Computed example of a mutant assay.
Amino acid sequence: METLEIVKKIIEKAEEKKGEDIVVLEIGKINPIIADYMIIITGTVPIHTRAIADNIIGGLKEYGVIPHHLEGYTEGRWIAVDYGDIMINIFLPELRDYYKLEWLWSDAPRVEYTAEGIKQ
């Protein structure tokens, strides 16, 4: 499965569980060592962030795509899911606002997406 196909699946799975304010950044243009893409998602409460993470991980597992690392799941305040080329951050609103990853990576191009697919 190609990286952009996986990004699209992640977005779909996050939207299925009502993930909010989904942002996709192409951080590989700035620092390819970390990842090619970073996806930032907001959940409303810890059980919601865990449900988003579960839906993404379970959905990608069907395609044989397994995360390399999962962090923060138990608390559910900031869940980081590392797929190698793709880093997913699922935040509670107050933590997303505090850490401001979009600002930190503001030089990275945003990837636009629609129901039809990802626009490069």
Rank of each mutant, 00 (worst) to 15 (best):
G19R: 04
I10G: 00
E75M: 09
I41W: 04
H48L: 05
T42G: 03
G19P: 05
E16Q: 13
H68R: 12
K100D: 11
L4S: 08
D82W: 11
E94Q: 13
T49D: 10
I88G: 02
D107L: 06
L101A: 07
R110V: 08
Y98A: 13
V7Y: 05
A108F: 10
D21F: 02
D21H: 12
I22K: 10
A35T: 04
Y63C: 02
I22F: 13
I88Y: 02
L92N: 04
P32W: 14
K17R: 15
N55Y: 04
D97M: 09
L104M: 11
D107Q: 11
E12T: 12
Q120P: 00
A14K: 01
E5W: 07
S106F: 14
I6H: 06
I40N: 06
G117T: 04
Y83C: 04
H68Y: 15
I41M: 07
I30L: 15
E26H: 15
L104S: 04
T114M: 03
K13D: 00
G28M: 12
I118K: 07
Y99F: 15
I39W: 02
P67G: 08
Y63N: 13
A14R: 00
E12D: 12
W78L: 13
E116V: 00
I47H: 12
I118T: 06
I27Y: 07
Y98G: 03
G59S: 08
E116K: 14
P67K: 04
L104D: 02
Y73P: 03
I30E: 12
I30N: 07
D97P: 08
L95P: 00
Y113R: 06
I47G: 00
I40T: 11
L95A: 03
I86T: 03
I86Y: 08
D85I: 11
D54H: 09
E116D: 12
I39D: 00
I47K: 15
E5K: 14
Y99P: 05
K18A: 06
L60P: 01
I33V: 14
H48C: 01
G58R: 09
E15T: 10
A14P: 00
I118Q: 05
E26S: 11
L70D: 01
I79P: 05
G28K: 11
G117Q: 05
K29C: 03
E16L: 09
I118N: 06
W78I: 06
T114A: 05
W105D: 05
L25C: 08
